[in-house]
């Protein structure tokens, strides 16, 4: 079984101790300094919006997911949104727009 994430993180601080004193080793790994994240955990409306991140087969999986959800009577936005490039971060405008989405956003899975 794999270790929990907190146990896998690189050490924040290492000391080197000789016979009489200890020295802090210089940490080579930068840590994130994020702004507080505000997310809504529960959708306000029962609707799903799909986002294809353009990795291979992502769109096909999203289309299949839309079909299954619709067959189960769940409202799904007809249009599947697309990120420009699988390998880069989501553009700020798209992220801002999705953050206003009151339903559930389901992002791309692949390959």
């Amino acid at each position: 079984m794999s270790k929990p994430m907190t146990e896998k993180l690189p050490a924040q601080r290492l000391m080197s101790c000789g016979e009489v004193s200890c020295e802090v080793l210089v940490n080579p790994i930068p840590r994130p300094e994020p702004e507080p994240i505000r997310i809504t955990l529960k959708p306000k409306v029962p609707r799903v919006t799909l986002l294809d991140h353009k990795k291979p087969n992502s769109l096909a999986i999203m289309q299949f997911a839309r079909q299954i959800l619709q067959e189960r009577g769940i409202e799904v936005s007809e249009r599947i949104l697309q990120k420009d490039d699988a390998s880069t971060a989501m553009p700020a405008a798209l992220l801002a727009s999705l953050s206003q989405e009151p339903g559930l956003v389901l992002c791309g899975v692949s390959d």
Binding site: P10, L25, P28
Partner: peptide
């Protein structure tokens, strides 16, 4: 010991490293 400490603590690419003493 310090090399092993780095290896055990995620401060490595998988090979032994020179410990980053000040």
């Amino acid at each position: 010991d310090d090399i092993e400490k780095c290896m055990d603590s995620g401060w490595t690419d998988g090979l032994p490293v020179i410990p980053p003493y000040g």
